[in-house]
Amino acid sequence: MRAGAGRLNRYARGVQSIRIALAQTAPRLGQLDANLARHHELIGEARAAGADLVVFPELGLTGYQLQDLAADVAMRLDDPRLARLAGATRDLSAVVSFVEESADHRLFIAAALLEDGEVRHVHRKIHLPTYGLFDERRFFAAGDMLRAVPSRLGLGVGLAVCEDFFHLSVAQLLALDGAQLLVNVSSSPGRDLAATHEVGLGTASSWWTLMRTYAQLTTSFVVFCNRVGNDESISFWGGSEVVAPNGETLFRAPLFDEGLFTVDVSPGDVRRERIAVPLLRDERPELQLRELARVVAERAGLGHDTTAESGAEPGLDVAPDDPPHEPIGFRKAR
């Protein structure tokens, strides 16, 4: 049985533990070589600390506020520098993030799972915030694929980048696709210092609530790695986390401090939680698919919304008291 040893090994992991290293770094803006060197150093440190997985933040290889520098620091997936970084992951898993240039010269914010010397999987950020202090869509293309992938850790891994986790569907789709370990890498700008917040930082409270919610609803581990340091006006707040499948926060890194933090998790917690609380079993993706198809058609004005008041615009269930004049081409579906 050729695969036997591997299988035994995976089952055996049920009673073992996985050591996760969170590389809460402060990347240097636009300095790809310096950041690459730092990644190599930290991968070495993580290995020495016995880590099975080391996670770096969003755009840890380039810095965040790149603007027109994005093209200058972009790497193709066949870039030798990426291959060398992957080469540093024998007997180890790493999640790194950089600007990826596709063959047709689109620039993506990418996160890659590197394992055993290879680039195992690349996730291209699918939700690019372009509002408030964010301007990502101006400089980057949005990814349009979401895949959970197997990993040498014995757990299915789902990668997401920052804003991806501000959209409910992402964590759910990854979990339904087989992820048991959700990894979110971020460059989250800290803001809102109102004294009423949990730790005096609105952004931190908001993110930690999300991480906990996703872990609990997907009954998966959630690993959140957020950067520190400054790009221009922005201060990144760190506070990286590992949350158990029951929503319990297993580890929380300090705010604003750079560091490599390790935490051990029991992969068996996924099975325990999913049997005790079979939320994932009870998901109804086929119902979602059907209803989403209906909603999409109605929003496009291609179907009559059976739940809407008469005279409501597509996508709205409430009709205006005084219906506005309809421009040509915007006919309501009846």
Binding site: L29, L193, A195, G200, L201, N230, F256
Partner: peptide, 24 residues
């Protein structure tokens, strides 16, 4: 009340900001 900030966080953010601005 609505203007009260966490001064510990503010000091930390500003300290790093000043250092980063000068270093950069």
């Amino acid at each position: 009340a609505e203007l009260a900030i966490d001064t510990g966080v503010a000091r930390r953010v500003i300290r790093e900001f000043i250092r980063a601005q000068l270093r950069q």
